[in-house]
Nucleic acid binder design. Sequence first.
DNA 1: TATGATCTCCATCATTTGATGGAAACAAAC
DNA 2: GTTTGTTTCCATCAAATGATGGAGATCATA
Lengths: 209, 209
Amino acid sequence: MATPLEKARKAPNSMKAKILKKARRVFGEYGFHGTTTRMIAQEVGIDISTLYYHWGEKGDLYESVIVDINEDLRQKLVEVEGIIHGRPLPDRMDIAIDLMTDFLFRHPEISNLVLFQYFGKTRGKKLINVEIPEFVSGIARSMELCRSTDDVPGRVRLQVLAIMNSIHSFISGEHFFRKMVELEKNDYMAEVKKTLKFILIPAFTGKNK
Amino acid sequence: MATPLEKARKAPNSMKAKILKKARRVFGEYGFHGTTTRMIAQEVGIDISTLYYHWGEKGDLYESVIVDINEDLRQKLVEVEGIIHGRPLPDRMDIAIDLMTDFLFRHPEISNLVLFQYFGKTRGKKLINVEIPEFVSGIARSMELCRSTDDVPGRVRLQVLAIMNSIHSFISGEHFFRKMVELEKNDYMAEVKKTLKFILIPAFTGKNK
DNA sequence: TATGATCTCCATCATTTGATGGAAACAAAC
DNA sequence: GTTTGTTTCCATCAAATGATGGAGATCATA
């Protein structure tokens, strides 16, 4: 039997999917406690009881949102892995940073929600069990930091987390950071990519540009 | 005339200061909307009206908390700058990472709140005006990424932000990340420092360890 | 001890917010 | 066109939450 989330992902024009889409953005901006069901409903243009009809209680909708964005992120990582496969490491990193940054700039709520997941506690809610390790292992293998995806060393996992978090930070912090560097959106994106490459690539390749 | 915050910082045993201290931790864990005045009051062991008597409305207390942790962070950065002054760059970075990581592990709410500040929007509240640029310029000069603190190039600012965010991420994400690497707190701290140095130092010094 | 200032708590309010029941609107099947 | 199942909205509730007034407690000082 399909879960509500699976239904929504299969039928992108359904009300369920519309609600999910808006919920991603609102939860992404304001976090779980900062978001009210009324805010989401208003965004969709429906009554809150319609929202509850489709998704049940707020916590369930939030959980679906988290699983949803994690699935999107996973899919993108697999796609990128396919593209960079076989190239030399510096190129792989260069391309992966470009592609992931572009993707996340198009879907900033993903970065927002990932960071909320890491840093913010949610009152009274059990932690949602998303298998980040899966991502991490995949990236680690793709960067040839380990042989197999089983038993990735802790040190390597932290390195991968550092990479992902660097990217997420610049996406989620755009509002704040862009003021500081006084750049237009496009210039900011370009500079972020440069900065990420400047910092991340030398450590793993031994070469500065 | 002294602001409430200045009073609290000068009299660490006052009720104002006690409330501020607990408020830091609670706001740091749950964010602005995830925190209720009752939670803070209970933590201090007082009635909420006592809290309101000392700090006024919730938003004002939160703003004081933000300014407070930014001041702590600024002081620490100045202290570290004094210690590393005059040494060669790789040593400066090595020591600075050690000192800042230790400091933030002792005060994780600082990292939490800094990240909330960057990534989370607060419903209906105007953005608090804290001069991050000041930090950033100081660090940039200390790393010799620029001559003076005036007119620090955007590229350099982003580099400094990347450094600071990497550290904050590992502190704030401890709960989440530590599970993934299955380490005790002390081992986690040690591995985080290694990872930060591994990633950050080569970019700025051209040398891998 | 009397006086005034400061501080703390109890009781309470108004609003917001999560959540639901039931009536109406709509759609599909026969 | 009636019946049946689905979807949507209106009205409403109970609990949580931000906020305050005022009575009492505490404390310094004359």
